[in-house]
């Protein structure tokens, strides 16, 4: 699906069916330097189950025109604008990593648009170490490697991926290699500067589901306590041995949790 927001071309995967305002909608927001394709299995599920599924390419990512948005609140406002452009009043908002902060912020500041939020691989705040920010700022290859190395659990580096024949870390690396220069840094910088997560969480009025990886070294499960406490109604799933890239590491478990939450 192609839309225009702020006079820029926007792309979102809808899995063979244009959104129908009469159906419930699940909207997916990807993480730093990634794109819509991280949500394909999940989007296809919800479309078959009579939902709209919309997996966006944030500006400057995938097929959407740039530049990347500069802050998490800007991403949240863009999500609301995208729902407007798609003719959708409200949706279950699902975000991974940076995308989880965007949907958290959107649910707090545009409460009428969020029927529920799912935060995958999340924490608030979401500090980013200089060891990653510096090479990202310089567009060095090291940043992509660190993102891939730290983004997957030690088990994921051995493989045994449930999608047959796919080498998980290789696929993750190829995806972030596609990001244009500057995009990774812009995204990481936005995460690093976002200080309002806990305050925003207190303003959320819809149910929230947290999907966390037991071995996530980028957004460790232990760093989520304050966020979880601030959300009024939340559920939490900690995936055993899971890392940060949970949609590729444990797709069936993430889908089961999403399907139960969305209903």
């Amino acid at each position: 699906m192609e839309l225009r927001i702020d006079d820029r071309r926007v792309f979102a995967a809808t899995y063979g069916r244009e959104p129908d305002p009469g159906r419930p909608t699940v909207l997916f927001v990807h993480g730093a330097a990634m794109d819509r394709t991280v949500w394909t299995l999940f989007g296809r599920y919800f479309v078959r189950h009579e939902h709209n599924a919309i997996a966006v390419d944030l500006p400057g990512h995938g097929r959407s025109e740039g530049p990347p948005l500069e802050s998490i609140p800007a991403m949240a406002d863009w999500v609301a604008a995208l729902l407007d452009a798609a003719g959708i009043d409200s949706a279950f908002l699902v975000g991974h990593s940076m995308g989880s902060l965007a949907v958290l912020d959107a649910a707090a500041r545009h409460p009428e648009r969020a029927r529920g939020i799912v935060l995958v691989g999340t924490s608030a705040p979401m500090p980013v170490t200089d060891a990653l920010l510096d090479p990202a700022r310089a567009n060095e290859r090291l940043a992509l490697d660190l993102l891939t190395l730290w983004g997957h659990s030690a088990r994921a580096h051995v493989g045994g991926f449930s999608v047959p024949g796919m080498w998980m870390t290789g696929g993750g690396l190829r995806l972030v290699e596609r990001a244009a220069p500057g995009v990774l840094f812009a995204d990481l910088d936005a995460c690093n500067r976002y200080a309002d997560g806990i305050e925003r969480a207190r303003a959320v009025r819809c149910p929230a589901l947290l999907v966390l990886g037991e071995r996530d070294s980028m957004t460790p499960a232990r760093a989520v306590r304050d966020l979880e406490a601030a959300l009024p109604v939340s559920r939490r799933l900690v995936i055993r041995h899971g890392g940060h890239q949970l949609m590729s590491e444990r797709p069936n478990q993430v889908l089961d949790a999403l399907a139960e939450f969305v209903g």
């Binding site: 493989g159 047959p164 024949g165 796919m166 080498w167 290789g170 696929g171 690396l173």
Partner: peptide
């Protein structure tokens, strides 16, 4: 498939 993809530096096989 995973092993050969890993050894060749690909994303899948």
């Amino acid at each position: 498939e995973e092993r050969v993809a890993a050894l060749e530096g690909g994303l899948g096989a």
